[in-house]
């Protein structure tokens, strides 16, 4: 039965860029634990020799020819922007760190 600490939830929230509240930390810690303990069953059946499936359809080698096709105008590109400046998306200062 996996246990999830508040700190772990806080770390996940930071990775996921969610400014969760104190109450949410407790709520999610509890709920994640319940959900994970119920889905942990997946390890019961899947033996080591079973190959994982990432794509249900068995397609391979799907390519595009290297030919330009029209995209969006600058105006269309910026149409949803909260703020724009000099033809660019305006965003808050970026920390030199991610």
């Amino acid at each position: 039965m996996p246990t999830i600490s508040r700190d772990e939830v806080a770390h996940l929230a930071r990775l996921a860029r969610l400014a969760v509240t104190e109450q949410e930390l407790d709520l999610f810690a509890g709920q994640l634990e319940v959900i994970l303990s119920s889905v942990a069953r997946v390890s019961e059946v899947a033996a080591a020799d079973i190959p994982p499936t990432s794509h249900a359809v068995g397609l391979t080698n799907v390519f595009r020819e290297d030919v330009p096709r029209p995209g969006l105008t600058q105006q269309q590109a910026l149409s949803g922007a909260f703020a724009a400046e000099q033809g660019r998306f305006r965003v808050p200062r970026i920390l030199d760190e991610s």
Partner: peptide, 11 residues
């Protein structure tokens, strides 16, 4: 990047 007030993005 240090001390910048905001940033502008070109994709």
């Amino acid at each position: 990047i240090h001390g910048a007030s905001h940033s502008l993005l070109d994709y």
